[in-house]
Amino acid sequence: MIVQAIGAAFLQLLQMGLVLVAAPLLTGFVSQVRARLMGRQGPPLLQPFRDLLRLLRKEAVVQDETSWLFTATPFLVFSTLWLAAGLVPTFASGLALAPAADLVALVGLLAVARVLTMLAALDTGAGFGALGAVRQSLVAVLAGPAMLMAIFAVAAAMRSTSLPRMAEFVLSGGVEPRLSLAIALLALTMLALADNARMPVDGPGAGSATIGGATSLEYSGRHLALIEAAGMLRLLIHASLIACIFVPWGMALPGDGALAPVIGLGAFAAKMAGAGVALALTEVLSTRIGIRRLGEYGGWALMAGMLAAIFLSVSLGA
């Protein structure tokens, strides 16, 4: 019992460290692959680390007339997303903190981070930041519910909203492939793209059409570093969430032996690499939708989530 508890705590610590390393790596990997796909050399894999370090060392300039909320937000957003990333099983499922928050609470944590970001943007009182907040609000309003509906479908199929249990359920072969799960996967992917300001919704170099950039426009130095790092963590959360629910294979389960976490790490790296390549491909191949289509996009994601839930609840009863 005690040994188990210590093991879980150790795994949790490992996980907290792992996500901090994996998040910038994933971001760097995606931009590397994207650059390669477009015929450019691209920045080195470790560039995000260097960027973050450079920003951390730079002097932070804080706008006059902003409140404590503005300076506290980067720390709170980062730690909220760090915790959220630490809650999603990546290489092993027996994490100590798992019962602290299930998938619903995870969505809540993501929402908290979004709300804080928006409030900080409004705190600057600048027109451009407010514009970013306005757009972010649209994503937030659509992404949260759509995600919950998709989760609804998945959780109902797996009889749980606890991520380790879901992974274990899939690993034990308790889920047969269902149309509803495929739709839920689609919805979750659409949301991941929207929530991370990735390509069909938004993307690097979007200028005044940007969503994410506008809210963090007034940040600099270490504050900006934390906001950027939080963005990388968010991408990792979405990727590892999808991996954990839909392809949990390779994950170390409690009682799997000492070598299992190592295999789990390898499997996790492979899954993230796959996710990164898929994301880069999507980004290169897709066209950014306009903000005026953002509502439609979110609506489709929501509909997909709803549809998944409806299919599932109809088929479960039958």
Partner: peptide, 20 residues
């Protein structure tokens, strides 16, 4: 923890400036 780590790496100085 983050605040402590960030302070070690980058210090805690922040310059106040009028909005750009």
């Amino acid at each position: 923890l983050t605040a402590a780590a960030v302070r070690r790496i980058g210090g805690r100085a922040a310059r106040r400036a009028p909005p750009w």
